[in-house]
Simulated assay, not measured.
Amino acid sequence: MQDTVAVALITSLSTLAAAGLTGLVGALSTRRQLAHQLTVARQESVERRATRRDELRRDAYVGFLSACDQAYRQLDRRWLEAGGSEPVPGYDEAYAAMRAVDEAYNLVLLEGPAAVESVARSVLTSLTLEYADQRRFRDLPGDAATPLRERHRERWITAIEARTKHRISFVDAVRPVLDGGE
């Protein structure tokens, strides 16, 4: 009888030990799987945020360039206008285009990075100076029938060169950011 009890006891203990060992191995395996899933979820979250940031930046940069193009078109129209004695309205189409550039610049400020913000500020400053020059030139005495571009040809050429230089600088600053550099 003692042999039977001993065999039963050994069988019970070995079964319990096997169950405990199986449970421990299962728990460790589950822990590793959960840790891996958590790591994967974090990486996916980081990638989604990076993708979203890149999309927002791209939209901000494209919006800024589009607003600049519209402002350049308005400034070009003003260069081709003949002066006159009529009062210049404080809020004209060129001014509205300049305000749109300001608003697009605000998005660039929010999306960054600092290198792009700096170049965008240079573009905005250049546009603002050109706009101010046009308003000042229009008020100067001279042949009112002659377009501003003809009366102030050197300044017009300088403005066009500045536009080109600043636009290229902005695109050069943006490309590495959009390519994942920052």
Rank of each mutant, 00 (worst) to 15 (best):
T51V: 05
R175A: 15
R136M: 12
A104K: 04
E55T: 04
L140D: 06
L28T: 09
F64T: 03
W156T: 06
A145Q: 07
A145L: 09
A159L: 00
R121T: 09
V88K: 07
L178Q: 15
E130I: 02
A18Q: 11
L9I: 14
D143Y: 10
E117V: 08
F137C: 07
R99S: 01
Q70G: 01
F170S: 01
V123N: 00
T11F: 10
S126L: 01
A97M: 00
P147T: 07
A104C: 03
A97I: 00
Q33H: 01
L24N: 05
D143L: 07
V101F: 00
L13A: 10
E103Q: 13
R31T: 07
P89W: 04
L65D: 06
Y72R: 14
Y72W: 15
G181P: 00
A114H: 09
R42K: 13
V101M: 00
R52M: 11
F170V: 00
D133K: 01
F137H: 08
R48V: 05
V25P: 07
D139H: 11
V7I: 14
A19G: 04
R77L: 13
A96V: 10
R73E: 15
R149G: 05
L109Q: 15
Y72T: 13
A8D: 15
G180V: 01
A120E: 01
G84S: 03
R138P: 02
D143F: 10
V174R: 02
T164R: 06
E130N: 03
R163T: 05
R48S: 12
L38I: 14
N106K: 11
R151D: 11
L124D: 00
I168N: 14
V25L: 12
L13S: 03
L124M: 02
T22C: 13
L21K: 04
G142T: 09
V7E: 15
A27I: 12
A8S: 14
A17I: 09
E161F: 02
V171E: 11
D3F: 10
W79P: 00
R99L: 09
R57K: 11
A120Q: 01
A96T: 03
H166I: 03
L9T: 15
R32Q: 06
Q33D: 04
R175C: 10
P176I: 07
V174F: 10
A6M: 13
L124R: 03
E111P: 04
D92N: 14
E86V: 10
L24W: 04
L9W: 12
E154H: 12
Q43W: 02
S85C: 09
L9M: 14
P113A: 10
R135C: 10
V108G: 03
Y61E: 13
A120R: 00
V116I: 08
D179H: 11
A60I: 03
